[in-house]
Design a protein around this nucleic acid. Structure first.
Lengths: 210, 210
DNA sequence: TGCTCAATTGAGCAAGCGCTCAATTTAAAG
DNA sequence: CTTTAAATTGAGCGCTTGCTCAATTGAGCA
């Protein structure tokens, strides 16, 4: 195998490991898979990383890239548009592998300290990004949410739970269902103030007709 | 080892396997752990079960028992009391092992067909039980929920997501936080009609003073 | 009492895992 | 060109896993 500097080699390995994780999952992926994908010897891989370290690094890189794409990439659009787009797309098939990794990390992160620390970091970053988006929406007056942090945490927890239900073979919750349920929860948490007032008027009118 | 009938032996093994699962988790538990706990040879265990089958059976038994305890055991109490008790207790330390199994099953159930089928069954049963409880509350007029099935699914998904956050070592979500967040979601989904009216009056009064 | 067959044993197989290490190759410094 | 240190190799070690199978044991029946 053509020689490279240590830094370049490390980058190659992390990138390949990330692809292997997407293909096989955190649990099924092996060091030999990564080495084979790069056409390098298994010994070289272990010269740079141990598996726990490499797996955590590759996982963190994937999650970070995904978060940037989902939350930070289109900061020019209004918060409600960004959130609506996220709700519509987050359960699309192309993200199955990522949610699968997330669920696996919730399990393996308990026994693998590297993975646990990485998951915690990713968790906090997602939480932060989501809460910021909700606060931005408050500022733009597209909704009114008095507990952005709490809402962000609840929505993220709901998403991972829904992902778990959706990803099962023979799942009894379809992607469309998951999107719908997430949309309902989003409306609970981030109700548009205008709609709230309208709904209040409506219910008052109903009582009046009784 | 003292001889037993096939049926008794199978029961012994399933029971011991359930305890091993609680102790070590779905992933770390091994056939040897179960055999050792019963003081029997590993060969005998494999005479009655293969590991995939046994693990799924033991998992299902644990989840079923827990569901009975949480939802069906005190049917004489009002639905809101049952639900409130569930919210307060579901994240208690004694159920950590169970939630851990649930999260592990979301992962392993994708590659282990037995476990996948068992998880699906348990999922549907929990969903059914939860939705029934919500509908009972509708009948008792302790709340008004127009989408009991949807609410049940969202709450279960939220719970598993919160459990995943809570169970991590160095979790940034405490048990108290999890209870609070679940309580908030329950109020979203099953708002007491009386409280709704009171809140409406309150917000009207606020606008009047401005 | 002897027979029979199912329950039970436990050494060990085959496979997979992360990782080691002595040996080899090669880019770069002197 | 020579030297040197670092990159690279790959056979294989040590361990764990689920599971097999020939051999052994013992409860129930004639």
């Amino acid at each position: 195998m053509r020689r490279k500097s240590a830094a370049d080699r490390r980058e190659d390995i992390i990138g390949a490991a990330a692809q292997v994780l997407l293909d096989r999952g955190l649990l099924a992926a092996t060091t030999r898979d990564v080495a084979e994908r790069l056409g390098m010897s298994s010994g070289l891989l272990n010269h740079y990383f141990n598996w726990s370290e490499l797996r955590s690094l590759a996982f963190g890189r994937l999650v970070d890239a995904d978060r940037s794409r989902a939350l930070s990439s289109h900061n020019h659009e209004p918060a409600d548009v960004v959130l609506a787009a996220f709700v519509q797309t987050c359960f699309a098939p192309e993200y199955d592998a990522l949610w699968r990794l997330w669920i696996e990390a919730m399990d393996l992160g308990r026994s693998d300290a590297n993975l646990g620390a990485q998951l915690r970091r990713c968790d906090l970053a997602w939480h932060q990004g989501f809460a910021d988006l909700i606060r931005r929406g408050n500022g733009e007056r597209v909704w009114r949410c008095n507990d952005a942090d709490g809402a962000a945490l609840r929505l993220i927890a709901l998403i991972s739970g829904l992902a778990g239900l959706t990803l099962m073979p023979n799942a009894h919750v379809s992607r469309q269902d998951a999107i719908r349920h997430l949309g309902v929860a989003v409306r609970y948490e981030c109700a548009a103030p205008v709609q709230q007032a309208a709904r209040r008027r409506l219910s008052r009118a109903k009582r009046a007709t009784k």
